Amino acid sequence: MSIQIVRYASAGDVGIGLRDGDTATVRALAAPSLAALLREGRAALREAVESPGEVVPDARLLPPVDGLTEVWAAGVTYLRSSQARQEESQVADVYSRVYDASRPELFFKSPAWRVCGDGEPIGVRVDSDIDVPEPELGLVCDARGDLIGLTVCDDVSSRSIEGENPLYLPQAKIYSGSCALGPGIVPIWQLPDPAALDIAVTVLRDGAPAWSGRTSTARMRRGFDELIEYLFRQATFPDGVILSTGTGLVPDLDFSLAPDDEVVIEIEGVGRLANPVRRATDEAFAWLTPAPDRRPA
């Protein structure tokens, strides 16, 4: 497996490191934050990656996003997503028109401090009847809009809330535990063809698969450059941005995530992201703060 740029906690300190995908060894990088690398751009990122330091003992991985870096997402970029949104929605033609339109659907997903990492809980809303994982490839862009890395994203969503009215999209998409990223960032130069990566998801319930699916980024209707160009129109991201590219895997309407499920997403060459499911109550996600020592061990 390829190397990954990660955030980690070790002995009470937070740092940036380079993780070997085969051995899970983390070596420290000379960077104060991921946001600093995204401010500097691809050359600074490559320089840091090519000069790793000492091995970090007992490194615990944190979400690969910090500072003022934002997470955004694209919708209806796969035919399956368009079909699923039309099935659930009381205004179905909105989604068919978005799929065919020249302008993509883009929406804010999460600030850095609200993102969950690999192994950390994700949440389902208590006021929603149908909640699903949305396994997606995340594009890591620097402040100039250059694509410099890839990560795995789970754009957890309420189908019932969005289906009731498309204007409820922010409530269906933005809440405690609704965004997971990780386990790290794979530099873009390591993947020769990121536009044709296999994506797989499995939801485990009592240890057995309750739902699973597989697709490929080759089935996306829109290209990465197009999505990035629209995101950076009339907007600046001084600490860079992570753009999740939409999902091609949506279960039937008779399936919903349940507390104690585990969602496992694997993207070829990028990594494996696994998260247990909890109800998104204030108590259950009180740990979700900028302070790394508040995160569960």
Results as ranks from 00 to 15, higher is better:
280 A>E: 00
273 L>A: 04
49 V>N: 03
183 P>Y: 13
98 V>D: 15
184 G>P: 11
237 F>I: 09
241 V>T: 11
254 D>W: 07
187 P>G: 08
227 L>P: 05
98 V>K: 12
140 V>C: 13
133 P>Y: 13
2 S>A: 14
86 Q>R: 15
192 P>G: 14
218 A>Q: 07
230 Y>L: 01
20 D>K: 09
91 V>L: 15
71 V>Y: 09
286 A>G: 10
294 R>L: 05
96 S>F: 00
238 P>A: 02
28 A>T: 08
77 T>E: 12
176 S>M: 10
296 P>S: 08
126 V>Q: 14
158 S>A: 12
61 L>T: 10
79 L>T: 09
148 I>E: 07
175 Y>C: 05
224 F>G: 07
229 E>W: 05
227 L>G: 04
96 S>K: 02
229 E>Q: 13
244 S>A: 14
130 I>F: 06
257 L>P: 07
100 D>L: 08
168 Y>N: 15
155 D>P: 10
38 L>F: 13
127 D>F: 04
199 I>R: 12
265 I>H: 10
151 T>G: 11
109 K>H: 02
52 P>S: 03
142 D>C: 01
40 E>K: 14
251 P>I: 13
261 D>T: 02
288 L>T: 11
89 S>F: 01
212 S>V: 00
60 R>W: 06
120 E>P: 01
259 P>G: 04
232 F>R: 09
42 R>D: 15
3 I>S: 15
223 G>F: 00
92 A>E: 09
292 P>W: 01
216 S>R: 08
180 A>G: 04
243 L>S: 11
220 M>V: 04
288 L>Y: 13
290 P>I: 01
268 E>W: 03
292 P>R: 05
163 G>I: 06
125 R>A: 08
5 I>R: 11
266 E>G: 06
179 C>E: 06
174 I>A: 07
161 I>V: 05
97 R>P: 02
10 S>L: 04
102 S>N: 12
225 D>Q: 13
83 Q>A: 10
30 A>P: 06
114 R>D: 15
80 R>L: 05
192 P>E: 15
99 Y>H: 15
226 E>Q: 12
175 Y>R: 03
27 R>L: 01
198 D>T: 15
32 P>E: 09
4 Q>G: 03
66 D>V: 06
256 S>N: 13
64 P>Q: 08
43 A>V: 01
22 D>P: 02
43 A>H: 02
188 I>Y: 07
101 A>I: 09
123 G>Y: 00
151 T>K: 08
138 G>R: 07
69 T>P: 12
32 P>Q: 03
246 G>D: 02
37 L>R: 10
48 A>Q: 03
211 W>Q: 09
2 S>V: 13
124 V>D: 11
159 R>L: 11
128 S>E: 10
294 R>H: 12
7 R>K: 13
12 G>R: 11
196 A>T: 15
118 D>E: 14
104 P>Q: 03
232 F>L: 07
188 I>T: 13
159 R>V: 02
56 V>R: 05
147 L>F: 05
156 V>K: 05
1 M>I: 11
133 P>M: 02
